[in-house]
Structures are given as structure tokens and as C-alpha cells.
Simulated scan of single mutants.
Amino acid sequence: MPFEPTAEIWSAILGACRVHSNKELGEIAAQKLLQLNSLNPGNYVLVSNVFAASGRWKDVEQVRMKMKGSGLKKTPGCSWIEIGNKLHTFIARDKSHPNSDEIYQKLAQITEKLEIEGGYVPQTKFVLHNVEEEEKVEMLYGHSERLAIAYGLLYLPVGTLIRITKNLRICGDCHTFCKLVSRFFGRELVVRDANRFHHFKDGVCSCGDFW
């Protein structure tokens, strides 16, 4: 390159390395990104996630400490859905919504149907925390977009398109979950995450499973 690569460039390279499982180049990109002392918390989270995916929990802790020392905080996952001209906000594992009990009950019913009819099995590899398998499953089930989907299925008329906005990139397991919902509940979903629009219909996503 005719100029020094920026944090954004190393971040893009690191993201590509994660997609294509290039650990050698990913290690270089991660170290370069950390050396730049970026003030973007997303870069630290990306590096942390790459280390976590490889089970390098000591490195994960070091990255988190470095991030904390820089006064940065990870942005919590948040999803929005508009129903009846009112915007409803959900945070991961959130129970502050006035209809929380009903939402979680509906989500449990959805998940059970997808497990029985769609063969859904939670992909805990997408939970990048050093916790037991059972807790990883619970964390996946509490992702904000699932709460928004459950609320949409509860209160939007049958056949109505469900539109959701998410501030972070949708995880691979939730992506599978959305495809199955579109197929086994006969509902189209549009999820706008931090990267792109995902249009789910009849068990297929417009991104072609590459996001």
C-alpha cells in the first residue's frame, strides 16, 4: 500500500480472516489493530471475539483489560421493532418490557416448534464467553432480535412483514433462527443489522448466508 494501513483497514482484514478461518493472518491483523490504540470499542471487541473463538481466554482477558484501561465500553446488543406507531426496544436478556413474561413465553414456544419441526440446535460456538454450555444456550435464547421477533409474532397481524433493526451484527445462530422462523411460521422478516439488510423468506436469506 502507498500509505500506512489504518485501524479500519486492519479491522476489515481481521473480519475477513475470521470468515475464512485464516488464523495466521488474523493474528497479525489483531496485533496491528491493538498496537494502534483505536478509540473504537468495536475493534477491541472484534479482536476479543477472534481470540475467544480459538479458546484463548487469557488473551481475551488482556484485550478486555486494555479496552477498560482506555475507558471504552462494549455496546450492548439492542433491537427495535415498531408496532402501532410505537417503537419497542429490547436489550439482550432484557426483562424490562411490560409484556416481558408474555414475550418469553412466546419465544419458548417458537424455539420448541423450531427444534421439533425444523431440527434447530443452538450453535453455542457463537457465544464467545468462557461459560458452561447450558449458560451459552441461555445467552443465545436471550438475544435482543429474538425478543423483538417474539413480540412481532404476538402483536402483528398474520401475514404482516416483521421489520427489526439491530445495532450490532446478527450472530450466526440468530441468523439460522430467523430463517427457520420465516419458514415454519410463514412470516417474512427484514432485519437491518450493523452490516446490511437481511430479508428472510421461506427459510432463505437474501444475503445468501454470507454476512
Rank of each mutant, 00 (worst) to 15 (best):
L87Y: 07
G152E: 08
A148T: 08
H199P: 01
F185D: 07
V50M: 15
N49T: 01
V191A: 05
F197C: 13
R146Y: 01
A53F: 02
K86Q: 14
L140R: 08
L128Q: 10
G15N: 04
L46R: 01
Y141H: 14
L87D: 06
P5F: 01
V190Y: 02
V121F: 11
G71W: 07
E132S: 08
A29F: 10
E133K: 14
K68W: 10
R163P: 00
E133Q: 08
I13W: 02
K125F: 04
I28K: 14
L39G: 13
N195I: 11
P157R: 06
L34M: 12
I170A: 09
K179D: 04
R18Y: 02
E115D: 04
S21M: 10
V47T: 04
G42A: 10
I164F: 05
N99A: 05
A7H: 00
E27D: 15
E134M: 04
C78S: 09
I91M: 15
K58T: 12
I162Q: 09
V45H: 07
G186T: 09
E117T: 02
V50P: 00
G152W: 03
N43A: 03
E145V: 05
N49A: 06
N130C: 09
I81E: 14
C205T: 04
L39F: 13
C78V: 12
G84I: 06
T160A: 15
D173C: 03
C17M: 01
P41S: 13
D94Y: 08
H143Y: 04
G26M: 05
I116T: 15
N130Y: 10
S96C: 12
F126H: 06
S11H: 01
R187L: 07
Y155H: 14
L153I: 10
G119Y: 07
R187G: 08
H143R: 09
I9L: 03
E117A: 11
L33Q: 02
C207R: 12
V50E: 15
W57L: 09
R192W: 03
V191S: 11
D202Y: 09
L34T: 05
L34G: 11
W211V: 00
R192Y: 11
D59P: 04
E134P: 00
H143C: 07
C207N: 11
R196D: 12
E135M: 02
V204P: 00
H88A: 03
H20D: 08
N85E: 13
K68N: 14
D173L: 04
C174E: 04
G142C: 13
G119M: 08
V190Q: 08
T6A: 09
K32Y: 03
D59L: 10
L87G: 05
L34Q: 05
K201W: 08
